[in-house]
């Protein structure tokens, strides 16, 4: 559906996007993740043809973005960050204007607006000025705008940023609804959102793709394993460290701050998918230590994200 090769964008001598290559299949919901300034928006803007890439090619279906921008625009619905719409226009007037630009006339124009208003829940606000709407409603109008041409690909730049939790759920619902038939690319820096809505996650940092795949594959590829956290009484760190290092599969062990002096909290990082709880427990049982706490957690997407995008 979308084929990107060697996409690069320089702002003067700052490299915002650095040789990104990517294939996007039909029907995928893709989450573009990355810290602020990673190049998400720039990438999306080049996809829509708003920015000219410094080098590299983008093909949408069979069209090249630089050679057939009009054909590409017809396949893509785009909503920039925070839905920058004309705030002095009425919602209806705005959609009417956009429908006109997309070539709908007379009855088709009205029925298209009605259909989008049903999809995005706009009936009650049709005769309000866009500037008066809350952020969530504005975002819905923006999605209606992006869906106007019934595009095969929908690109949303941070569709839920700045919304309250209820509005976020509503927008997600609309995105999921649309995603049944369309290819959607959305950028976000909220990880739980990407996990909840996307089939495939692409993490970019400093203009480069650092991870690409479903949440599961990213977890696995990042050698994430799990961490067992134990709080012990009557134990000394060197002793515990020595004993635990003997267990196969323990990658690292370090001390964590504990609530009082006679308690010791350690985090045991396990390197692979094997469950080491049993082994760890057996060791503890063979020592005169008292367990107060014992739990295991698999490395969260947050941690992976931090590892991948941290400044060294």
């Amino acid at each position: 559906m979308i084929h990107i090769e060697g996409l690069t964008k320089y702002y003067h001598d700052f490299c915002a996007v650095d040789h990104i290559s990517l294939d996007i299949r039909k029907g995928e919901i893709i989450g573009l993740l990355g810290p602020n300034g990673a190049g998400k928006t720039t990438t999306l803007r080049m996809l829509t043809g708003y920015f000219q890439p410094s080098s590299g090619t983008i093909r949408v279906k069979d069209f090249s973005v630089s050679e057939n921008p009009l054909d590409v625009k017809k396949c893509i619905g785009y909503l920039p960050e925070s839905a920058p719409l004309y705030h002095n226009m009425l919602v209806f007037d705005y959609l009417h204007y956009v429908a006109g630009i997309w070539g709908y006339i007379d009855d088709a124009r009205l029925s298209r607006i009605r259909k989008l208003s049903d999809l995005c829940g706009l009936e009650d606000i049709m005769h309000k000025t866009i500037g008066e709407l809350s952020k969530g409603l504005k975002q819905r109008v923006g999605i209606a705008h992006a869906m106007m041409s019934d595009p095969e690909i929908l690109i949303l730049d941070e569709p839920t940023s700045g919304l309250d939790p209820n509005q976020i759920v509503e927008i997600r619902k609309i995105i999921k609804e649309i995603g049944k038939e369309k290819t959607i690319i959305l950028s976000t820096h909220i990880l739980s959102e990407a996990e909840a809505t996307c089939d495939r996650i692409i993490i970019i940092n400093k203009g480069k793709i650092v991870a690409d795949g479903s949440t599961e594959t990213i977890r696995r590829s990042q050698d994430s394993g799990s961490t067992i956290t134990v709080t012990l009484k009557n134990a000394l760190f060197p002793e515990v460290e020595h004993a635990m290092k003997a267990v196969q599969g323990v990658r690292d062990i370090h001390k964590k701050p504990s609530e009082s002096e006679d308690l010791l909290t350690v985090a045991i990082a396990c390197s692979d998918d094997r469950d080491l709880r049993e082994a760890v427990y057996t060791i503890i049982k063979n020592h005169p230590w008292i367990i107060l706490e014992f739990h295991q957690e698999s490395t969260s997407l947050e941690n992976i994200f931090r590892n991948l995008t941290m400044e060294n």
């Binding site: 829509t48 043809g49 017809k74 785009y78 909503l79 920039p80 925070s82 719409l85 630009i101 705008h145």
Partner: peptide
């Protein structure tokens, strides 16, 4: 300044 320029340019207009 409001950013609608980006929206305008991504519509099918030259």
């Amino acid at each position: 300044s409001i950013g609608s320029y980006e929206v305008l340019l991504t519509m099918p207009v030259s």
